[in-house]
Design a binder for these strands. Structure first.
Lengths: 355, 355
DNA sequence: CAGTTTTTGATTTACGTACATCAGAAACTT
DNA sequence: AAGTTTCTGATGTACGTAAATCAAAAACTG
């Protein structure tokens, strides 16, 4: 049988109250006694029953997720994952609320963060916009003792507790490497479609991609970046124009959103000979993979990111350490053959990580 | 505040005992009363506090994992994941034991299953060997009311409750598709290194790979399968011989284990021009990716599989349904650029899906 | 050594659910 | 209507921990 607090008390020759004082770091225990109790904990291999502890504590963690609004399918998927987490939040003694803000607008994000601070939450997860006033708002949250993690897009200079997202430079490198291999000896330049150079994740992806292409020694020129503002229509127009102006184009790397427009432009131009790599497994990229217009999709698992953010916020709120290696988000590669079946985000079993 | 059993009782105008009878499917409740209670549960959105329920039940689920012994690094990694699950088992009210059996030996597996049945466990997870006597043993376990899942390699005809592993035909197709794209127009045949055609997962991978290659219309011949018995030394010898006999070889698909030998043979022959795709991210394949001798590694996440197996065994033991879509194991693709940092398997936080 | 402070013990209540018991009410019999 | 069966209520204990209270003991103080 696994040991419980009574066993520690007996083993250490102290009372239950003293064990409780040691376990919960309460004052009023001599150093020698504390050592005896800790020795008993060690030798018995006691581990606190978190379920029972949480039950007894009755503590809940109010958390806020600040997610950009708009039609970006990845962000909508992210929000769906947060909603799924809300469904589980009862089990996890967490109360999660979702706040939508207009995308790419620092002022709105700042207002949302300040509102969360005022409402006295235990933690905030936000998709960061790269602006100094946002960094300042994050600083205020931290000063108020509120845990804060950045989600998907980071703001490293802000003093956030953690970044829940992928290594975007590595993602860009991965895209570049796949592009190079898929193209092989085929000549021709490659185009890059981004959302905006004002968001950090897009800039980092571009850096990684360019770095790999540069390693080819100029044999694979990268055209000037097309900024589609994550807007399908603008993206479609830009790609159509690019295809027209570059009949020798060999590939396209789409590192932001608006991929519905990309696919539409490719289909309209009947250019299925290009090597196309996009980001995030959403409805448009899925369709592109299925139809063969997109060759590979790099994905970050929004569900993982959300669950990781919640774990980290709770740990930080409790002052517990985070095992960084455990919270790393992988860069998934999807091609047509390993495309997972489409499935709505549903509630997951209580103890699941997840997968 | 989230509703609890008392709220249901009050809302339905019944006593706590009646609510309990309804919630736990105990007899002695009229249909009309039951309906009233269920309506209250619905309208209040009640969800049982599993932590409290498990605490009250005090029930533990004894589970057995039957894993092949030997040096196969993937299997050792799998066992490490089971060990990590053992560390968490206290939290999950599960008592897990691990049994090692000699690989590829149906008789040993049958004995292990029968021993588990005798010891009265609640569930069994086993890496299946494809043999009729194994199917019979699985039938005995099921007849004894014991939940049983196959792990990594399936035995579909056995009536097991579930298969915790990847779609191996799709994995083979993925390998074939990547191989075709990486090779492009480069001519030459490809070789396949398998462990043994007696295990189902290897056969299925081969089928998928061959199917994709056949779609190229014979322009990419697949040489006869090399059976390396998952033994590095034998694999090394076979590959060395194959390289010598086929100077025009374009690629190698290693769908089993023994990849240390594969990498050694490639290094010895100084053939880094080949397209090499292997399975399972282990020490040898990791080294191969890093050194450029291996181009891509397809992986199944052993941690996911183990955790999924535990969830399913517990659900089956309780007679609860399993959300199949939720338990699907993905085929991960790794290239050098998205290789996750090496990390030993460690205990994970309580509520973690793992990621 | 008396007095003070600090440490420890003993005990209780609570968290939300499971499960068992027994008495009482309601619904069926005949 | 009386008896029988089926249903329902009331109540208590348990799970393992948290947190609080108050009394008792031990350790210091001068």
């Amino acid at each position: 049988m696994r040991p419980i607090v009574y066993d520690i008390a007996a083993n250490a020759g102290v009372s239950l109250a003293t064990v409780d004082r040691v376990l919960n770091g309460r004052p009023g225990v001599r150093a020698v006694t504390r050592a005896r109790v800790e020795a008993a904990i060690q030798s018995l291999g006691y581990v606190r029953d978190m379920a029972a502890a949480n039950l007894a504590k009755g503590r809940v963690y109010p958390l806020v997720f600040i997610v950009p609004g708009g039609e970006n399918p990845f962000m909508r998927g992210l929000e769906a994952e947060v909603r799924a987490a809300v469904d589980r939040s009862a089990f996890e003694r967490t109360r999660i609320s979702i706040v939508n803000v207009p995308p790419f607008e620092p002022a709105a994000l700042v207002a949302a963060i300040d509102a969360a601070i005022t409402s006295g939450v235990a933690g905030i997860a936000a998709v960061a916009v790269d602006a100094p006033e946002v960094a300042e708002a994050i600083g205020r949250a931290r000063a108020a003792g509120i845990a804060l993690v950045t989600l998907v897009s980071d703001l490293a200079t802000s003093g956030r507790d953690h970044f829940c997202g992928v290594d975007n430079v590595a993602a860009g490198r991965t895209a570049g490497s796949l592009m190079a291999r898929f193209l092989g000896a085929r000549p021709g330049p490659v185009a890059v479609l981004a959302g905006s150079m004002r968001v950090r994740d897009h800039r980092e992806r571009l850096d990684g991609f360019r770095a790999v292409m540069a390693e080819a020694g100029g044999r694979r020129p990268v055209l000037d970046v097309l900024e589609g503002q994550d807007d399908p229509e603008l993206a479609q127009a830009l790609i159509a124009e690019c295809l027209e102006n570059n009949p020798d184009l060999a590939g396209i790397y789409s590192l932001g959103a608006g991929n519905g427009g990309l696919v539409a432009a490719l289909a309209a131009a009947a250019r299925d000979d290009l090597c196309v790599i996009a980001h995030e497994l959403t409805a448009p990229t899925r369709a592109g993979l299925a139809s063969g217009l997109i060759d590979a999709v790099l994905n970050q698992d929004a569900g993982h990111e959300v669950r990781s953010a919640i774990r980290i916020l709770r740990a930080k709120a409790d002052g517990l350490p985070v095992v960084e290696a455990q919270e790393r988000i992988r860069i998934d590669i999807f091609i047509r053959e390993n495309l997972p079946p489409e499935s709505g985000v549903g509630p997951r079993p209580a103890g699941s990580d997840e997968h």
